[in-house]
Simulated assay, not measured.
Amino acid sequence: METLPLTPPYGPELVGTAGERDVLERFLDFYRRVTVSKVYGLPDEDTKRRLVPSLTTLAGLLRHLTIVERNWFQHVLAGRPATADGGDGGWSVDDVTVDELVVEYEQECERSRAVAAGLTLEDVGSHPELGVVSLRWVYVHMIDETARHAGHADILRELTDGVTGAV
């Protein structure tokens, strides 16, 4: 697995005066990259080790975020059929390597970008519980979801080997 450098400027700093869409996309991509960076250099067993009482692991965060990306962009916005997540939100990762999880997540993020590229911020999709949501709303939700899990990943990485920060 190659090293993922996150050296300043990280991305959000580059769009301080950009339009709304550029800002939303840059922040989401930044947190996607931070999350992926948290598993770099770690063996599979460390990424799958439970360090908190929940099922949350570094590897599980990647799978979970892959499913979240797929749900919001492919299912809700593009109207494609939902896919099963195994019923656990994607937290079970015994069947894959961390390298496979990174590839799967990065591919799903690319598919999300492709869906979004064909939409305006005002275009909408239908969520089974929330009803109609715009791409703008999905971007904000995904920034929230991905940033929250990037923070979880930062804590788990620190507990694993002491590494902290956007690395």
Results as ranks from 00 to 15, higher is better:
Glu2Asp: 03
Thr3Lys: 01
Leu4Arg: 13
Pro5Thr: 09
Pro5Phe: 02
Leu6Gly: 06
Thr7Ser: 09
Pro8Val: 01
Tyr10Lys: 05
Gly11Gln: 10
Gly11His: 06
Leu14Phe: 11
Thr17Met: 01
Gly19Ala: 06
Glu20Pro: 14
Val23Asp: 12
Val23Leu: 06
Asp29Cys: 11
Phe30Tyr: 15
Tyr31Phe: 15
Thr35Arg: 00
Thr35Leu: 04
Val36Lys: 03
Lys38Trp: 01
Tyr40Ile: 09
Gly41Val: 08
Leu42Cys: 07
Asp44Glu: 04
Glu45Cys: 00
Arg50Val: 13
Arg50Leu: 03
Val52Phe: 03
Val52Ser: 06
Pro53Arg: 03
Ala59Glu: 07
His64Asp: 12
Ile67His: 04
Glu69Phe: 00
Arg70Pro: 14
Trp72Phe: 09
Phe73Gln: 12
Phe73Asp: 11
His75Met: 03
Val76Leu: 00
Val76Pro: 08
Leu77Thr: 04
Thr83Tyr: 02
Thr83Gly: 12
Asp85His: 07
Asp85Val: 08
Gly89Thr: 05
Val93Phe: 01
Asp94Lys: 00
Asp95Cys: 05
Thr97Cys: 03
Val98Ser: 06
Asp99Pro: 12
Val103Asp: 12
Glu104Met: 03
Glu106Pro: 04
Arg111Gln: 13
Ser112His: 07
Ser112Cys: 12
Ala114Lys: 05
Gly118Val: 11
Thr120Glu: 14
Glu122Gln: 13
Val124Pro: 04
Ser126Arg: 04
His127Cys: 02
Glu129Tyr: 11
Glu129Lys: 15
Val132Glu: 15
Arg136Leu: 01
His141Trp: 04
Glu145Cys: 10
Thr146Ala: 07
Thr146Trp: 10
His149Ser: 11
Ala153Ile: 09
Asp154Asn: 08
Asp154Ser: 07
Asp161Cys: 09
Thr164Ala: 04
Gly165Trp: 00
Gly165Gln: 01
Ala166Glu: 08
